[in-house]
Design a binder for these strands. Structure first.
Length: 778
DNA sequence: GAGTTTGAAACT
DNA sequence: CAGTTTCAAACTC
């Protein structure tokens, strides 16, 4: 394990990427490269073959799914902030995970005197990092340099003076940035007219802060060059979180790449893991900034720094999308709300100014709820959704979901919110719109279903006495700010009360670390949503069991039922009749059957139709067991727990054996795939030392020769090849050390698994483009 | 839409 | 940790 220094082995092109033909090729690509069907297909296939990831979604080419394309604007629009609207409150942010990214729009930053040095990747020509001087507030710059160390303090301090609002964006935010469809520009979402013509031009100034420890950051960049950029940036402290915070003079808004600001808290929905992660991380915040206004041109390139070059190719878009999944999900509700507008402006994004002018309040954010930072919140939450609530899901997108779900499984996540995730898919979009339309006049309940779908979307709570600062409040629980749709009274769950909200969350979390964890954790991500789908339903577990007495676990009072999962041994329910699986251990199938399935060790996924319910029962690959064991309640460990029955609504879903087959292959393939396996092995060896390869191959039971932690790592790597790829590309020994230490620390704390999950998820998300490169290179 | 039921969260 | 109270969602009418 202590071999961080080891050379990244053979895998993926062990050589420096920047030197590789692929790298050169990528750099030479025009910002708006033509789609490459073959590549995408290839990529998809590769991923499918792997356990992980749903590459397909990641790399889905825009062309393939036009609908998605126009979706991006939606999300971005979903949250609209006006400049003026930002509240004077300072927000204390936390980094949900290593890769959490903050995007902050700097008001008039350009006009300010501050000089900011950024290393940007020139989209086309200038490849590597070039320092860019931005004008901002001097104070910022200096403060950054001096104050990097303690972001929190700085932030707090700032509160006093502050005009600043901080929102920590998780990767989603980054994704958004990346998401610039046409131009790779941060500005992508900006008014279409402007941007299309001038990809490089942004009217607004945005600052993107990437919060992570320096080390972590260094890890992140797939390529040395990028890494270097980041590191340099960090070193210079040009944009440390502190600096941003410290600069009281400047108005900072949080915005996503789009003009319309969206607030996302890192790990908003997710569980407590985030917190831990943060704590573990070395404190410095790193940031990348994207300037607003005219300077955007230069700054646009920053986005590249964050996640590969968008320039790279159309594939970037895919990556974007994939990353965007979180957002999209979160934005589901928003979509619904703004759906109409979205349609109208399919291509154009609402200028932030519009919003700003109209909304001065944070409420402007209504559409996109803000995920609360920090404590207990994280992305994992993509959640479980009762089938009936779920929105159709696109295969391609599923990749992320899978990953996230898996993680969430592993960890806790948040999701509370659970359910109702929305996908990028065009179909999804339609669905959302449809729903939305129906919901517009519909009562709160109906709206609820959809809103909940989004992890980060507003839950439309109607709290009266809790002030939306207790778990009773769905919004609070989900880590989002209450917004317009809410009918709460005396609500304190607002950006203006950040401190209160955060402290309250901390309090609650300290009491119960799992408080913000999702009630139901799914093993497989988002697939459950699938409409189209064939997607296998995810298996799910309970964070903690239900305690139903009168509802017989047949109503939504039951968390398990609501989450679309069966009750488990961890439940304390009485008279359980959960349609998704009874507590006694038998869901739709008898335990024996389940065990039989496990024994067969088909590994893959088996699909069975249950005549009675027309539900799908899936046996999950037992390979996952090790990790699950760590993360699961002991009581739930047996094979039966892996059973998942789709909610009744799912019965409608068409089941395509084809896709299922694909899925199964995905699960199985990784082990068999030379392409992926090899890298993993090398990585495993690097990290774990000799011998792990077997574990990776599945030849030996993990427990056999690998220590628990190591085993987990191996498992994670199997699940997230991209992580491997990323780490492998990170040449910095420090990166490896950091990764290792981080993993270790994750497990030293309670719920470390959650943190781990968050870590990996973030890595996955953040580096999706790297993945792409990796695939190509391979 | 109002009232009831329910079970989780909060409190003691 | 158990019992009670509070709370807001789910549900019913």
């Amino acid at each position: 394990m202590d071999t961080p220094d080891r050379p990244r082995a053979a895998a993926a092109g062990g050589g420096g990427f920047e030197d590789s033909p692929v790298f050169n090729f990528i750099n030479s690509l025009s910002p708006i490269p033509p789609p490459k069907p073959l590549d995408s297909a290839h990529n998809v296939q590769l991923f499918k073959s792997s356990d992980l990831a749903p590459v397909s979604s990641i790399f889905a080419s825009p062309h393939v799914n036009p609908a998605k394309e126009y979706k991006l604007p939606i999300r971005e629009n979903s949250v609209q902030f006006s400049r003026e609207s930002h509240s004077p409150n300072s927000v204390r942010t936390r980094i949900g995970a290593t890769s959490s990214i903050r995007m902050i729009r700097c008001k008039n930053i350009v006009s300010e005197n501050c000089s900011i040095t950024c290393y940007l990747n020139e989209s086309n020509s200038s490849k590597s990092s070039q320092p860019i001087q931005l004008c901002g507030g001097n104070a910022e710059t200096e403060s950054d340099k001096n104050q990097n160390t303690d972001g929190k303090k700085d932030i707090t301090t700032e509160q006093d003076r502050t005009d600043l609002e901080f929102v920590f964006l998780d990767q989603r935010g980054a994704e958004k940035m990346d998401s610039s469809q046409s131009g790779n520009n941060v500005c992508e979402n900006q008014p279409s007219e402007q941007h299309k013509d001038n990809p490089g031009t942004c009217d607004g100034g945005y600052m993107i802060a990437h919060q992570t420890s320096n080390d972590m950051l260094s890890l992140a960049p797939p390529f040395e060059a990028e890494t270097q950029l980041v590191n340099e940036t960090l070193e210079t402290d040009v944009f440390s979180c502190k600096s941003l915070l410290t600069d009281g003079s400047s108005d900072l808004y949080i915005q996503n790449s789009a003009h319309d600001p969206q607030l996302f808290w890192a790990g908003a929905v997710e569980g407590s893991a985030t917190d831990y992660t943060l704590q573990m991380l070395p404190g410095a915040c790193q940031s990348q900034m994207v300037p607003n206004d005219q300077n955007c041109n230069k700054l646009n390139e920053l986005s590249d720094c964050m996640s590969m070059d968008q320039n790279v190719s159309s594939q970037n878009l895919r990556g974007m999308r994939r990353r965007c999944l979180f957002d999209e999900k979160s934005g589901a509700a928003n979509k619904g709300v703004k759906n109409t507008s979205v349609r109208h402006s399919a291509n154009s994004v609402t200028p932030r100014h519009k919003t700003s002018s109209s909304d001065n309040n944070l409420k402007a954010l209504r559409t996109p709820p803000c995920a609360l930072p920090g404590i207990g919140l994280h992305l994992n939450a993509l959640a479980t959704v009762p089938k009936d609530k779920t929105v159709p899901h696109n295969d391609t997108q599923s990749s992320l979901n899978q990953a996230s779900n898996i993680l969430s499984d592993v960890g806790s996540s948040p999701s509370i919110a659970d359910p109702h995730t929305v996908n990028d898919d065009s179909s999804q979009t339609n669905m959302v719109a449809h729903v939305d339309g129906s919901g517009q006049g519909s009562p709160k309940k109906k709206r609820h279903k959809f809103d909940n779908g989004d992890d980060t979307s507003c839950k439309r709570c109607s709290c009266k006495k809790s002030k939306c600062l207790k778990l009773y409040c769905e919004c609070f629980h989900a880590g989002v700010f209450c917004s317009e749709p809410c009918s709460c009274q005396g609500c304190l769950n607002k950006p203006s009360n950040m401190e209160t909200v955060i402290s309250t969350r901390e309090q609650i979390e300290s009491r119960n670390p799992l408080a913000f964890a999702p009630k139901v954790i799914r093993t497989e991500p988002g697939q459950e949503l699938a409409d189209d789908t064939n997607r296998t339903p995810a298996s799910a577990r309970h964070k903690r069991g239900c305690n139903c007495k009168k509802s017989s676990c047949l109503k939504k009072y039951c968390e398990c039922y609501q989450g679309g999962v069966g009750c488990s041994l961890s439940c304390r329910c009485e008279g359980c009749k959960n349609a998704f699986g009874r507590r006694e251990g038998v869901a739709l199938l008898s335990i024996e059957e389940a065990k039989h399935g496990c024994d067969q060790k088909n590994g893959g996924v088996k699909e069975e139709t249950i005549d009675n319910d027309k539900q799908l029962v899936i046996y999950q690959d037992t390979d996952l067991t090790p990790a699950e064991n760590l993360l699961t309640t002991p009581s739930v460990v047996d094979c039966s727990r892996l059973l998942v029955a789709l909610p009744p609504s799912s019965s409608k879903r068409p089941r395509s054996s084809t896709k299922l087959a694909g899925y199964s292959s995905r699960l199985e393939a990784p082990l068999k795939s030379d392409i992926l396996l090899s890298p993993f092995e090398s990585y495993a060896e690097m990290v774990l030392g000799d011998g792990p390869s077997n574990a990776l191959k599945g030849e030996s039971s993990p427990q056999t020769s690998v220590k628990p932690l190591e085993h987990i790592i191996v498992w994670c790597l199997r699940l997230f090849p991209c992580l491997f790829a990323v780490t492998q590309r990170s040449r910095s020994p420090a990166s490896h050390r950091l990764l290792r230490s981080w993993l270790l620390s994750c497990f030293t704390i309670n719920q470390g698994s959650f943190a781990l999950a968050a870590l990996f998820r973030d890595e996955l998300t953040f580096y999706s483009k790297v993945e792409w490169l990796y695939i190509i290179h391979t």
